[in-house]
Design a protein around this nucleic acid. Sequence first.
DNA 1: GTTAGCATGTAAGGAGTTACATGATTTT
DNA 2: AAAATCATGTAACTCCTTACATGCTAAC
Lengths: 196, 196
Amino acid sequence: MAGGQGRVLELAVLGSLHETPLHGYELRKRLNALLGMFRAFSYGSLYPCLRSLLARGLIAEEQPAPNAIVGGRSKIVYKLTAEGKERLQELLTQAGPSAWEDESFGVHFAFFRHTEAEVRLRILEGRRSRLEERLDAVRTALARTAERLDSYTLELQRHGLESVEREVRWLNELIATERRASAEERPERDTTSTDE
Amino acid sequence: MAGGQGRVLELAVLGSLHETPLHGYELRKRLNALLGMFRAFSYGSLYPCLRSLLARGLIAEEQPAPNAIVGGRSKIVYKLTAEGKERLQELLTQAGPSAWEDESFGVHFAFFRHTEAEVRLRILEGRRSRLEERLDAVRTALARTAERLDSYTLELQRHGLESVEREVRWLNELIATERRASAEERPERDTTSTDE
DNA sequence: GTTAGCATGTAAGGAGTTACATGATTTT
DNA sequence: AAAATCATGTAACTCCTTACATGCTAAC
């Protein structure tokens, strides 16, 4: 119940408001459209988060344009402050487990446009090795107990392994693309020894 | 912090102990090998859960065989009681959102062997329509904003859609298999009108 | 004999949901 | 004028994690 309403949601909010000012209700819709395949936030977490960000000076209420003689005084449109932009950059620079775990990877990836190339690469590689650890653990366990398992359990394992393997291949492609792009930008550096 | 340490973990524990008695440490390893692709439990949730199940009479400490003159008095092996078996059946019979949401579907599926055929079918269909709702929502939102999105966001959406579509296809196959199997078991019933 | 892994547990807290409560505005 | 949807917010609660605390036992 303290102020730190979750780094993931905080990043998602700051990142969205960096593109354009928004009010809470629509912000939630945007987030759930953007991340709908991975997670969904509720108002019960979004509004307290906005309140906390406002109190910390990372966002501010945008004054409605005075030419609009609107009587409708209900929407509260928030925009990013200078401190908010700094905080966003800080969050986007962190390349650690908090960036590549299941709950947070999607959000970090969604704002890769604002992330430095080196950080992007480290996050993608971090996620990949996280998934490979998981594959190793499950495959090892499976090799020891496969014949004792019923068909539903086996099918679940098979499907789970396949999904994670697919994500690893996807990451491989992204990593290769990133490496090619950064090699093009600085062609003076040697790229043959940058593996692993 | 009350007694109800989560229906998902409760189901996972009861289901595992139904196969064979186990002590906490190994139970956790089994669960994380079984469900490692979807989620992982920590000791901090497992031991309180065992304590709660013990207090509710759903599991019991298994007495070590008296022929073993083992001085090793440390492992606490739990086994399912009659009430525990009833509770497990009750949990496995529930075909509702609590069975097909992301956090719980894998656990329910893992114990499908002990689930009635009709319940299995309803859970698979429930999961499928849950995923299809999600696809609709994201696709609609995407159609309205696709040209404004940067390449990373688009790639994330593309990958997310593809993953969910793959799971839907997987579910379609499973549902078809289930229908075929139940048609074989009761050939007197008509199966042509059971489609949506 | 000391590191590594087995084994059990607890207290505090983090991150978010659900359900509730309220009111304005648009659509039918 | 009723129903739907937009819009904001809070309190209580759920479920799980992290970090800590402890001791045993097997391997090197």
